[in-house]
Design a protein around this nucleic acid. Sequence first.
RNA 1: GCGGGUGUGGUGAAGUGGUUAACACACUGGAUUGUGGCUCCAGCAUGCGUGGGUUCGAUCCCCACCACUCGCCCCA
Length: 417
Amino acid sequence: MLTQMPRGTKDILPEDVGEWLYVENKIRSICRLFGFQEIRTPMFEHTELFQRGIGDTTDVVEKEMYTFSDRSGRSITLRPENTASAVRAYLEHKLYAESNLVKLFYIGSMFRFDRPQRGRFREFHQFGVEAIGEMNPSVDAEIIILATRFLQSLGLKDLKLSINSVGCPNCRPKYREELKAFFKDKVSEMCDDCRSRYDRNPMRLLDCKVEHDQELAVGAPEITDCLCEECHDHFEKVKEYLTLAGIPFEVDPRLVRGLDYYTKTAFEIKYEPLGAQSAVAGGGRYDGLVEEIGGAPTPAVGFACGLERVMLAIETQHLYEAKPENPDVFVVALGDEAKKVAFPLIMKLRDAGIAAQMDYGGRSMKSQMKQANKSGARHAVIIGEDEVKENAVMLRDMSSSEQEKVSLADVISKLKN
RNA sequence: GCGGGUGUGGUGAAGUGGUUAACACACUGGAUUGUGGCUCCAGCAUGCGUGGGUUCGAUCCCCACCACUCGCCCCA
């Protein structure tokens, strides 16, 4: 169908653009307050960047990427997320040379070939933040605070912040083994999904929704008990800083991140009324990514926030009201001679900063007055034969219905009064 | 990728195996000479997601596909 957009995509129509601008303005002002600078990276990258950065065995890379060969035969992928690109740009342009902590944010389209549903699209928009170059846990806390402040600045209520630590290459493997040992005798009676999780991502065994599996998971070791000293201390500090900043949170030992690059801190902000797709923002620390992509070992933290989901939340809480952008003046011209006066007049009005509209079709006065009314313009400027002769216009206040004849030369100053 | 629900004009929505597919809103035009918002009148789906099939005949029955939607998976 020519007149049908691809599945999972969405047109943002003029009536919706105001809400997007509203949200984007909030993002930019919060980021300015926190000292993050905007970066815009390409919508597509070499496929290998995502394979390396996100992880070959993740769902995103295995089955959700929009990958194709360009005309030169290079494998190209539409970005499924922006962190890998941001880090690539950080390395490529040697941003580390400017400062030992680089704070970036982005807003843009991401692409994942997923089954669409409420709050999940194939092309969707994320706002995200990356702080590259500092391992201090106060940066983790700052990122989390930025995310909550952003959502709060929109007036959102009932958000739930969960945090966890997923450990590091020193302690996570040990934990995985402990988990596997715990489930070893139980996998056989668990659901199909869990049986594949056992090998792929044992941490997922903990948050299976199947009731029987949940029972089996009771008493499983928790990662927070298995962290190495460094990770443990780091996590404690993050919690301390959050508490100092007065940010309420909940530790969820079963919170896992889907992308391979996460280490230590992981967090998620949910708005539960959204249903299945209730995660509004998620992120964490990824100390291994920069090195993975070819840079020097560099610690980093970040998060991403799904803007469609944010807007769904805004809509369910009625936090945004679109205000129509009305013209200041609607010019009504009766007949060809009048139009010869009206047409240059709307240009002059616009030059003077007055938003002016008119009817182009030479319709009846009644019809033009209806349009003037519907346009919401405060004033109508009416030009008929008499006015043309007199070099004047009829200036009508649409709400009071009062009108007066004004010389053509005075219209602009009258309107500006 | 898997499972459930839905699909009638711009919108909301009635409806039936067989003459002109209700109604409301919106939209367009009109109701004495150059004036809007109220009221009145008129117009507005040769078509009932798309393509097949069953039938003398289907928008209403069957199949496939597409889209939307809810859940699973995953994630923002």
